[in-house]
Structure formats: structure tokens, C-alpha cells
Write a protein that binds this DNA or RNA. Structure first.
Length: 275
DNA sequence: CACTATGTTGGTTG
DNA sequence: TCAACCAACATAGT
């Protein structure tokens, strides 16, 4: 579910509830969420007594900074974090509970159970899987035209596949790739190495602008996304192509069509985005 | 009921 | 190296 704007919003809303809280106990209902250490009891024991100092985001990952550890969490399609009083009944899709000393609990909910958690001694997270291969955040100074253009020249994959590749640039997913390519006027099936420098710069700038706008609107709620306060996003109202099939293009009036590209549902305006 | 789709990503195969 | 396909899992829509 969540792409960069949704994860950024989750991080910001979550901070208010968890910063400075100390983990008193941990309950794991679905062990496969925990990827490192591989022993879930070890994972639990390390977290006991740790205090949450801060929450960060890298690409689509949430990072909980603790006294001695960094907890790296990916929400995949449906993961959510919410804070409850410990008396509140546990929901059907709650898989991990962090119980704090103040009587509140951080609960990880995930209908499809695809989410992951990796725990590292602080500092080690950046040189280990899964963060070590992550490309720059679109908002990072490192995401320059020079960097991006060189990366695109080196591959003959379709531009849509490249933008979804988190090792090139981290944070774009299916919604924001379709929106970015529409705004840049680029067909998703164009091969990355055939794009001009001007086209690459357009994609880069439209990606940054689209993600910034989406963060400002609290992300996009298509069916299930809500932030950690339970609020919907509002950027779905600003979408030009994603989920807009059979509607008129807001730029030229032609019908938006849906197709399959790089194995994903893909939305384009056939007039504004030509091969 | 069967079959498809879903905001993600990792692994396998050719 | 890359595309294609499948896997993880649950639910909603046709």
C-alpha cells in the first residue's frame, strides 16, 4: 500500500505517540514478520527496556531509533501502526505488539502479513540488507540529474520498471510512477536508455514535485490507507491517471486507459504519452 | 462459485 | 542482465 508520501505521513503522525516511550514487553503473533534476528525470542529480548528516541523514514521504510538498536520496518501492501491503551481489544490482523511502560501499546496491523521488521545494532542498518542497496531518496541532494541520467543510460529496461526499482531511487511505487510519467509526458513502455537528458530531467522534477504535493496532502487513500491517527489521505483527489481509467484526461480530454506494464496495472493518457 | 485485482518485493527460471 | 512468472496473504469486486 504505502509509498513515500504515505510512509512520511505515518512517520509524522506516529512520532507524537511513541517518542520517549520505553518498551516493557513484546508480543509476536505472526513470527514471519520478523526477519532479523531470525530467532524471534532474541528479537523480543533485545527490545525489552529500549526507549524510542526518534522515528525516521528512508524510501518506503520506517526506522525506529532506539537506545542501542535501529528497528527497520517495511509496511509492504497493508501494514499499519497504531497506538492503543492496553485495555483495548486486539484486532484480528494485529501481529506484533510493543507494550510501553505507560500503559499504551504500539500495535502492528497487516491484513496481508507481507510487512517485514529487521533489527540492527545502531549504525549497522545502513550497511546491511535491506537498506544497503537502497537508492537515494528523491528529496536527497544525491538525487541529481547527473546521477539519474547515468543510471538510466546503463539499462535498457522500461522506464516504468526502472522507476519502481528502489535501488535507483527510493520511494516511488505504482501510483506515483504513473502520475510522474503522465506529468512528464512519457510513455511507461519507453526504454530508459532512449530518453533524452531533457526528458530525464522532466521525470526527475515531476517525481519530486508530485511526491512533495502528496506529502502535503497526507498521501493517497485508494481503499485502505489511513495514517497512524486514523486519518485518510487527500491526494487521491489530485490524481491524473492512477485509477482514472475510462475518465477524460484532465489535460486533453482523451480517455485514460489501463494496461499492464512491467507486470503492474498501468494508467496512461494515450494522447499525452506516446511511444 | 470461480476468477481477477490490489498501494510491494524477493526468488526462480529461461 | 532482464523479463516473466510465482510466491507470500487476505479481501473485495465481477
Amino acid at each position: 500500500m504505502p509509498e513515500l508520501p504515505e510512509v512520511e505521513t505515518i512517520k509524522n503522525t506516529l512520532k507524537k505517540f511513541v517518542i520517549n516511550k520505553t518498551i516493557e514487553d513484546l508480543t509476536i503473533y505472526w513470527a514471519k514478520i520478523i526477519k532479523r534476528p531470525d530467532d524471534t525470542e532474541e528479537f523480543r529480548l533485545r527490545l525489552l527496556g529500549q526507549r524510542i528516541l526518534d522515528v525516521h523514514r528512508k524510501g518506503k521504510f520506517l526506522l525506529f531509533e532506539l537506545n542501542d538498536y535501529m528497528l527497520v520496518s517495511h509496511l509492504r501492501m497493508e501494514g499499519k501502526y497504531n497506538v492503543y491503551r492496553k485495555e483495548e481489544p486486539v484486532k484480528k490482523h494485529t501481529h506484533v505488539i510493543f507494550s510501553f511502560t505507560d500503559g499504551t501499546e504500539l500495535r502492528y496491523n497487516d491484513v496481508r502479513k507481507f510487512g517485514t521488521m529487521h533489527l540492527f545494532p545502531k549504525g549497522q542498518e545502513l550497511v546491511s540488507q535491506p537498506l544497503n542497496k537502497l537508492g537515494p531518496d528523491p528529496f536527497d541532494a544525491a538525487f541529481t540529474l547527473d546521477y539519474f541520467y547515468k543510471k538510466l543510460r546503463k539499462t535498457n529496461r522500461l522506464i516504468k520498471a526502472v522507476l519502481l526499482d528502489q535501488t535507483i531511487v527510493a520511494g516511488l511505487g505504482n501510483i506515483y510512477v504513473d502520475e510522474t510519467l503522465f506529468k512528464a509526458g512519457i510513455h511507461p513502455m519507453k526504454r530508459a536508455d532512449t530518453l533524452t537528458k531533457k526528458e530525464v530531467e522532466s521525470i526527475r522534477l515531476q517525481a519530486i514535485a508530485t511526491l512533495k504535493e502528496a506529502v502535503a496532502k497526507g498521501g493517497s487513500t485508494i481503499r485502505s490507507y489511513v495514517n497512524s491517527q486514523g486519518d485518510m489521505g487527500m491526494f487521491q483527489l489530485e490524481l491524473f491517471v492512477y485509477g482514472q481509467e475510462n475518465k477524460a484526461c484532465k489535460k486533453c480530454g482523451q480517455q485514460i486507459i489501463k494496461m499492464k506494464v512491467a507486470g503492474r496495472g498501468t494508467h496512461i493518457c494515450p494522447h499525452c504519452q506516446k511511444l
